[in-house]
Design a protein around this nucleic acid. Structure first.
Ligand SMILES: [Mn+2]
Ligand SMILES: [Mn+2]
Ligand SMILES: [Mn+2]
Ligand SMILES: [Mn+2]
Lengths: 227, 227
DNA sequence: TTACAAAGTTAGATTAATCTAACAAATATT
DNA sequence: AATATTTGTTAGATTAATCTAACTTTGTAA
């Protein structure tokens, strides 16, 4: 186990690999432009990094075509994702941070070069399956649970759902959710949907009727209770 | 408090500042050559970094003279030392690492950009005063307890002392101490000293008579029990 | 089908941090 | 005092990661 710790990638390479993984989670491939926007790095820089990663057999790259991870690149990416999510869980569960505070710190700690460090985290947390934002944590072999959750915005009036994950871990978004007393596991009733802008009126935790914009409902991933 | 978190130094600069601090702990100044050896970086590189740090008012530097920290540089250095030692303590006390495993990991984590992260560590540890190797942890204002401990090798035959700190935190040295069942707080009797090579015969924890070379005894810092 | 916009590449510059080679200053040894 | 050794600096090259400006390819819309 931990067979991928022998791959030594720089902090920068790890960030690229993670970005490619997360952007391609659905479509399977990613454009240079997507990466450029996600990482806030100009396109020529991304192009040259793709050449470098292709050289190292971590990504498939051909001029003017979208890029994708090779099996080796995927494994490396999954390990970075594992380290990131374990760290977030550690920061929340062991250190007492709020879920809105951990992403930026994890973004740094995920690059620590010590397999033992992450192994200890995993052990202390009792081998968790999900991070504080509801995302699955890849196992030590790089396998990840892949059951894509529907967004709240895709649900219908009258449905009862529970908040299972969020697709935005930014401090701003999560602080907003905190202010509305929304957290993972909250049971939500969809009272009504405004056809004009897709905003939803919800009740949860005994609240009467809170309105959430579609922008927000797109980021709330839910488990369906009854259809 | 935490007034120095506004100073933003790169990982590299932080390592230089910490090295200058630790080398000058006794003499007060450091040569370019000392730094070069400590950091395993060639002298011309050190020279140019000294110019850069002098530019930023963190060190005093004049051609061909030893360098020293300015008050600003000293404060920055103390904060890095604080982060390093808090991290080592955290790794041992909270995460269950051995004292021989933590230095290299702390060397990386000390550069995490998040004052809150280190504040949480400090809180969880109950504001510790010493790290796992017996070195004092600077307070949030950068003040550090400065009572230099004598090395075991400076003590005399018949003295009873207790192991208070080690001046070498390398995995190799500490693994050696582990193999001899020596840890901080151990009460030691100096049975005899070999004049030829300065090696010492000690008894502790009910052992009969263990011999330690001067190289080792130089690195064991002790508190005197009786004279 | 031509024209325009978006996406991507190439070329060349920049920055931080490092290096080697050559030279200069300071210090130690004879 | 002369010489040798150690220490330190200068100059210039290198590497990783980034950028801008200019150009090319691809895809879309007139
Ligand atoms: Mn995250
Ligand atoms: Mn990162
Ligand atoms: Mn240490
Ligand atoms: Mn360090």
């Amino acid at each position: 186990m931990y067979s991928y710790i022998c791959l030594m990638n720089s902090l920068t390479e790890e960030n690229y690999l993670k970005a490619i993984y997360s952007l391609s989670a659905d479509r399977g491939t990613v454009n240079v432009n997507d990466l450029s926007k996600r990482l806030d790095i100009r396109m020529p820089t991304v192009t040259s990094m793709m050449k470098k990663l292709a050289e190292r057999k971590l990504v498939r790259y051909e001029k003017y075509k979208p890029v994708s991870l090779t099996p080796k690149g995927e494994k490396a990416a999954m390990y970075v994702v594992r380290k990131h999510r374990l760290t977030e869980m550690f920061l929340v569960e062991i250190m007492g941070f709020g879920w809105e505070e951990v992403h930026d710190i994890a973004e740094q700690i995920e690059h620590v070069k010590s397999a033992e460090f992450f192994r200890k985290m995993d052990e202390l947390l009792g081998h968790p399956s999900f991070d504080p934002h509801g995302s699955p944590i890849p196992d030590p072999e790089g396998n990840i649970r892949r059951d894509p959750l529907p967004a709240l915005s895709e649900c219908r009036e009258g449905e009862k759902v529970s908040l299972s994950a969020v697709s935005d871990s930014s401090s701003e978004f999560l602080t907003f959710l905190n202010s509305r007393r929304l957290s993972l596991g909250t049971e939500i009733n969809i009272l009504s949907i405004e056809p004009f802008d897709g905003s939803m009126m919800l009740s949860y935790d005994g609240t009467s009727g809170q309105v959430f914009s579609k922008v927000v409902c797109d980021k709330l991933l839910v488990g369906r209770k009854e259809k």
